[in-house]
Design a binder for these strands. Structure first.
Lengths: 297, 297
DNA sequence: CAAATGATTTTTGTGGATAAAGAACATTTT
DNA sequence: AAAATGTTCTTTATCCACAAAAATCATTTG
């Protein structure tokens, strides 16, 4: 049956909102809450119902009065707020990128379902979704062939990435001056400079910045296929680098500098220079990815 | 429950094999049949069982003697050999590309399941698979938003196609002389010339040739993402042109000539010329796709 | 005794059931 | 009467059941 992870997630987010308000204050209308928390009124009402039950609020018709501050134990643990889909994704990615499966092996749904303790449908749907990343392939009536996170995969990924990113950079330079991307870019430049100053301590924050930077560049292409491809890169890097923390500080230091080069060239509207800087950065990224694979196997 | 479409398909294919043999001849071993027809021995045995039952063969242990020629009525109708997945795909594509849905509408699984007379799981799995084509997008807990086969979609598709195809052409020129792609290319050149001569009559055969031509070009990239993208193009064109037969002869005449230009340039190893010819061809393809959309709405 | 057949076990493809979540309709309140 | 709440109906997410198909194990045969 369906899990009530959504309810639990909204519940937690509702508690966050309540914490912002003083005791005795009133909560907005159901429709307002529904809009703010991005859930249906049905779910909101379920949450309010529960909040009244644990006597965190008093709920009489349209009067919802906060009785006390939310406590740590009023929250659901984050594990329970995730959908099965997310659970399977994480379990699978950790296995595949962690190298727990042999390349070329035939994965079967029932085995994975047992391993992850979910139904076969959940695994099946995940695998269908995941197959677009090119790491597995369906063998009808037999299962899924694991093509593996190999050197070839990394090369193919990098090739397309370079193609897309170069194109995006070229389009970015020619964006009209009033495009809001320029504002976003100067803002990112500030953030890069700020991070550069305190990189020794906060180098782990780079991955978030990195993601936003590339997403902005890609957005210049305004192309769903190109943007979707960046989602793939994001997920690969997200999970992959959980097992490859080697040289992270050095890598990030170099990357920040490279990003800044690209940003400066873009602001100068120097297409030649921007492409060159982009090339340098991507060559580095490719190298990092490749070496991390060799390091793994 | 699971349909036995596979059994029926293998059954038909088995009859095709038997037709090649004289009455009284013996069929190969189960394992041989299994290998030849690409099915498990279980399915082969089910087929043999049935063939014995309708007294088309005599089956005693490892002796399988053909008793008579297969008749038309021994075959299962092709409709029954298709999986639900294929049924849903066709039904859905005809609806979406035929413009039976409004752009921006929220598609719901249960409605589609009723409409196509299959289970919600079948629809759901299809939609997940299909979402990678960028025509629909999931709204969690709500359904699927139809982004539609719009002009923007056609432009985004064409842009990426040009990026990939240009790259493939560039790589093709530099393929080593001993690469078997060269042989395939000269063979395709012959086929193009042959078709050109009889295009007035056989212009419908072009689509198959077109597909093989581009697939060969793409193969030079040897990149799963690029090849996957061509699969998307193929499916879009396959279904889309079932509703746009306008000017097909003229279009195909032009395309054959353009293909021949590209092929010649490739054989001459003239990268410049090949890219130029490719550009012309793609510009034409883009135009055709765009005009067909305007024509539709 | 290796290869083929026979029998059994496991897995996939598909439909269906059900709680959670959303949407739509009905009623109340300001 | 517009907006909010209360109620009911529909759809989604998830699990499970079961026949078809594959995989595996056991037995026979040349």
């Amino acid at each position: 049956m369906k899990r009530n992870n959504r309810y639990k997630d909204i519940h937690n987010r509702c508690l966050d909102q309540i914490r912002q308000l003083p005791t005795g204050a009133e909560l907005p209308t159901e429709s307002k809450l529904s809009e703010e928390l991005e859930a249906s009124r049905t779910t909101i009402r379920a949450v309010l119902s529960h909040l009244a039950e644990i006597e965190l609020i008093d709920w009489q018709g349209r009067k919802k009065t906060i009785l006390r501050k939310p406590l740590k134990r009023d929250y659901f643990v984050s594990e329970e707020t995730r959908s099965t889909h997310q659970i399977v994704e994480q379990a699978f990615m950790e296995n595949i990128l962690g190298g727990h499966f042999d390349v070329g092996v035939l994965l079967n749904e029932s085995e994975l379902a047992r391993q992850f303790d979910v139904s076969t449908s959940a695994v099946r749907e995940f695998l269908i979704r995941f197959s677009r990343f090119g790491l597995i392939e369906k063998a009808p009536n037999r299962g899924w062939i694991l093509k593996g996170f190999t050197q070839k995969f990394a090369l193919e990924l990098s090739d397309v990435r370079e193609l897309f990113e170069q194109r995006s950079v070229r389009l970015f330079v020619n964006l009209p001056a009033r495009d809001e991307a320029w504002q976003a870019l100067t803002h990112l430049q500030q953030e890069h400079l700020a991070l550069q100053a305190r990189l020794q301590q906060d180098y782990l924050q780079f991955s978030n910045l990195d993601n936003r930077f590339h997403k902005l560049i890609y957005s210049a292409s305004d192309n769903r296929f190109i943007n979707d491809f960046y989602d793939l890169i994001t997920i690969i890097f997200h999970y992959h680098y959980r097992w490859n923390k080697k040289d992270e500080l050095e890598r990030n230091t170099a990357a920040v500098a490279q990003h800044l080069d690209i940003i400066q060239a873009l602001i100068d509207k120097d297409e030649e220079q921007a492409l060159a800087a982009c090339k340098v950065h991507l060559a580095q990224a490719r190298q990092t990815l490749l070496s991390s694979i060799d390091w793994e196997k």
